[in-house]
Amino acid sequence: MIISFKDADTYIGTGGKSLDNTKRTLCFLHGSGQNHLSFIQQARFFAYKGYSVIVPDMPAHGFSDGNPCKSIKENAEWINDLLVKLNLKDVVIIGHSQGCLVALELNRIFKSFLKSIIFVAGSNIIPVNQFLLDLSEENPQKASEMMVTWGHGIDGDMSINKWPGHSHYGEGNNIMCMNKPTALKYDLNSCNDYLDGINAAKKIKVPTLAVLAKNDQMTPLKSGLKFVELIKNCETHVLDCGHFLPSERPMELNSIINSFLLKLE
């Protein structure tokens, strides 16, 4: 659905079902240079399980207009305002990569309605090398292609996909190309500049789940494992794939998330 929000058309994927703010809502937050299509195999899956699902395209991403947010804090405030506008009272945040940093900050400002946080390929810190930061400004398409290649495990190289006929690289590049050209630059800089993850992680009181990837080159497993130690009682799983868990291991990820959600009820 498209709503007018902060003077811009904003797209929110709902997994093919209508948004119902009386139900528990799963709010998926995409990563740097991504959009709602990062969660193709999660949105419909959980919407058809009976959850209310929202997958917002952040400003200047996917089908959303507006100007890109320029920091993790700004992203979190934007999401917070959106959740308030939609009058959601029982929310589980599921962040992927940059979406995990946004979830950490959101936890600080959206406490009352936040029931749980799920971190997918997350960490408290996502440093970005200067080469990629520069490239994201000079040639965002090339930067996107490099991220798609680095981000996937062997399934990307070998064009192995659980969705018959789909290519991780071809699809991934085109998903990133749907965003406004400046979106990636601000996303990567937001990640690189975010240094308060340790404090933010320690403040989490709600139940948490982390699903990390063994061959993650964007948020390395080592960093992810240090991160989860900062959070009290964070249930942790490691899958054998690259950074793009939602498309590389959709069934395994969905199954872990589903079991966790059932335990929350």
Partner: peptide, 26 residues
């Protein structure tokens, strides 16, 4: 419901055919 990828009937998709499709896409 097309919630996730997979095979349900070979008229729609098949693992061997999918390998060919993914090779062509690559």
């Amino acid at each position: 419901n097309m919630e996730v990828g997979g095979h349900l009937y070979t008229r729609i998709s098949n693992p061997t055919v999918a390998a060919l499709e993914q090779r062509l896409a690559a």
